[in-house]
């Protein structure tokens, strides 16, 4: 049995007091415990940002990489060893900004990866510039007169891109978030858990209070999570009412499922000594 204590590492998170990343971190650990995963069979991949430091504080295999690239790295690792439980974590700048290309492609591939995006609608680590999800008009250091563009809608993007588990959590709703992560990791396919993560230092608008007044749980409505159109309509809700929970879920073969070469033994565990290329060489005669 895995316990929370097993997930402790030498360090402690250095996020700002009250940072919305703490509850996400706790929820991830709780999910690992609840799923009773062997710590050495879990690998957590992240990019760069405040939130991307998370792998250092969860005692599993980890890869804290470069800005925007956790998904390709996780993809390579998952394809190299499809017995691993692969989780990716990163900020909205990381995933929806610099890494948005990978985000879209990872979803259409439907790899068995759970991707948690700590969406604080600003760039935290670089001290509060606008992010791809900042609300229109929001003023930051890099947009002193307010953001001109429309924000990216990650849920709608995920629906359009073919992700098979699409959800949104809220840092303040830890139990709810833990369940989303548990189900996302359990889901055989690409699972997005976008998390409303208040940045207490740089986001003066989208605060705990702001969200608390607006969020409601999809489970408490009659939302049909198998209905893509309904999910899309729900994804458009913002400002007055913000849905959290599972938007959409679908069972579709994963990318890995279609690869017969890893059906029995993961690549990383295949023998590479004495590979016979005799016949292959003959083909060049």
């Amino acid at each position: 049995m895995v316990e929370l204590a097993d997930l402790k590492t030498v360090g402690q998170p250095n996020w700002c007091p009250g940072c919305g990343n703490f509850p996400i971190w706790h929820s991830l650990k709780k999910a690992i415990v609840e799923l009773n995963l062997k710590t050495h069979n879990v690998a957590i991949f992240s990019g760069i940002g405040c939130s991307s430091k998370m792998p250092h504080w969860v005692n599993t295999y980890g890869f804290h990489s470069i800005h925007g690239r956790p998904l390709p790295i996780a993809t390579g690792a998952r394809l190299a060893n499809n017995s691993l439980t692969v989780v990716a974590v990163g900020g909205d700048g990381d995933g929806y900004g610099i890494g948005v290309g990978h985000f879209v492609h990872a979803m259409r591939r439907n790899l068995n990866i759970a991707y948690i995006v700590t969406n604080n609608q600003v760039y935290g680590l670089t001290t509060g510039q606008t992010s791809p999800t900042s609300d229109k008009g929001y003023a930051t250091k890099s947009t002193p007169t307010g953001v001109i563009e429309m924000p990216i809608n990650p849920i709608a993007l995920a629906i359009a891109s073919g992700a098979t588990y699409i959800s949104r959590g809220f840092s303040k709703e830890m139990k709810h978030l833990t369940k989303l992560i548990v189900d996302g990791v359990r889901h055989n396919g690409f699972a997005l858990v976008d998390v409303l993560q208040p940045c207490v230092t740089f986001n003066r608008k989208n605060t705990y209070k702001w969200f608390s007044e607006r969020v409601y749980k999809l489970e408490e409505t009659n939302h049909d999570t198998t209905n893509k159109q309904a999910a899309f309509l729900k994804s458009l809700e913002w400002n007055d009412h913000i849905p959290i929970g599972l938007f959409y879920k679908e069972i579709r073969p994963t990318y890995e499922d279609e690869l017969q070469q890893i059906a029995e033994t993961p690549l990383a565990r295949q023998k590479i000594e004495d590979i016979n290329i005799g016949t292959l060489m003959t083909e060049f005669e």
Partner: peptide, 29 residues
């Protein structure tokens, strides 16, 4: 790919190509 048990991926761009290779190398392939 199939005869020698490899996974060959045409990626979305070169950034993904090298990062996937790094992920696979990290994982032991």
């Amino acid at each position: 790919e199939r005869s020698f048990g490899m996974v060959v991926k045409h990626t979305e761009d070169e950034i993904a190509a090298i990062n996937m290779a790094i992920g696979a190398g990290f994982a032991g392939a």
